[in-house]
Amino acid sequence: MPFQKKGPPTLAQLQPGEQGRVRAVSGRGAMTVRLLEMGFVPGVEVRVIKRAPLGDPFELRLRGYHVSLRRSEAERVVLAEAEARG
């Protein structure tokens, strides 16, 4: 990649099939609270299942259920490790 994004890795950078551990949800307001309450709490494992045919949103799996998030929403979910695991 020519441009490596600065800052901590987020869910939006994972490829389908990859998995990461949530460190925090950044930002403020209703969206942040909703993401937390849907289970994106620190320590939880999230896997990217696939992207929608048009590239966005993402289908994710966490806590035994599937949810879809847009890229802009997935960017708020900060992951613990730099490198994603497959």
């Binding site: 209703a30 969206m31 909703r34 993401l35 849907m38 949103p57 289908e59 259920y65 599937h66 949810v67 879809s68 998030l69 847009r70 929403e73």
Partner: peptide, 8 residues
């Protein structure tokens, strides 16, 4: 509106 849509 956020998507945050469950895929049941």
């Amino acid at each position: 509106p956020p998507l945050v849509l469950e895929l049941p």
